[in-house]
Design a protein around this nucleic acid. Structure first.
Lengths: 124, 124, 124, 124
DNA sequence: GTGGTCTAGACCACA
DNA sequence: GTGGTCTAGACCACG
């Protein structure tokens, strides 16, 4: 699992980690039950503090994307079901992103094309 | 222009304002060249600090969604063209949102359906 | 809000804070919309680190017991509704506590008496 | 004695074992003087470390729920009397659990109903 | 002023 | 070995 962290970004490091893990799972680079690096390990790799990684893992745990097994450390969770709350939140996020696209004069075809492209990448 | 601000949200207020304006433009509730309320006016309406509104307007200006005309105050900009940088940023945002959707086991049909629904709403 | 923290307890400090806040709300010592001390303030009072208080507040936020308003700091949330998940978790917790009571030969009358006593204290 | 251990729970495994034994005794599934499986046996069954089971048994011994007889191994203790210390600890535990119930707007009737339901289950 | 983030250490509980 | 907790500082974003 290669982490690309931008220390200069205004997105908190722990969020960047969270995002990368989510992208990794969606792309199939991280499969359910696959172990994640330990908090210490990843902290050493990225050269950041343990607490920061821990924060990222806690967020992912709360969201149900990963679970920690007391014996084997942390691993990717089974794919969760979409709850109504998730759908609502998804709709809101998507609405904002697409609003910007629409304002930049992308039409339906353009948008669906990008969506398809992203989906296709996830499947490999 | 009705602003719905949630003081308890974890999204900064100035961002919420920015988002609402963007949604308003995409939905056609705010048309190009339409004037926006002055900073003071909006600050009074929402009962927040003028600085906060100013910050939102500045963000929107930088992103090219609104323009300030010395005589007439602030108004909605002409619809901008999609630059390569915009496309890149759009791709990144969309990728993360869709990643979460995919992990929650939504398939292509589900996702395109939601996208279509959002697009349709923008057209009214 | 008087906090009684036992540094020697094996219960983490942040959990103790969490528990005290919950007891305070149930007892009506902390009313909905009443402001809680700021993270710094409470940390100074108890002479512990800010992060520890922050962790307690975050837990309480996630559980819906408190909310933080970006303008006025943190305050007690409106009383939440009991969700099915909450009922399930409540049942499990209660079951374990009562099991110990039953083993210690407390009968139904004893147990209901204690429950009534606790409830009564909450109402003052 | 069927043990249900959740490796992904945030409750330590040794505590889960302890809890299950207590629930078993209260429910009458484990009777006083009934022998418990040996540490090795249970460790094998659940496929965990012997140390973990040992820790659970030690906790239960300290609390007076089980006794170790040099000849016959470990067995369920005679039902203990409620000491003042136990009552105090019981009160504290119960108070916290009920506090959460009260905050979730359960009234006395609701709470007593749940208590009765749990008690009834113990009697079968 | 508030809370959020982060560091560079440390100690402990669990298995 | 793992993750969890905690400290004593620091800087930043928000309003």
């Amino acid at each position: 699992m290669l982490m690309e962290i931008d220390m200069k970004s205004d997105i908190p490091i722990y969020q960047q980690i969270r995002n990368q893990v989510i992208l990794g799972i969606a792309a199939g680079k991280l499969l359910p039950n696959e172990p994640l690096p330990s908090v210490r390990q990843m902290a050493d790799e990225i050269r950041i503090n343990m607490m920061t990684v821990s924060k990222a893992y806690n967020a992912l745990k709360t969201e149900g994307y990963i679970v920690t097994d007391r014996r084997n450390g942390t691993k990717v969770a089974e794919l969760p079901q979409a709850t109504p709350e998730f759908m609502k939140q998804l709709y809101t996020s998507l609405e904002l992103v697409l609003a910007e696209a629409v304002i930049h004069q992308l039409d339906d075809l353009d948008i669906h094309a990008i969506v398809t492209q992203i989906s296709t990448n996830f499947k490999n």
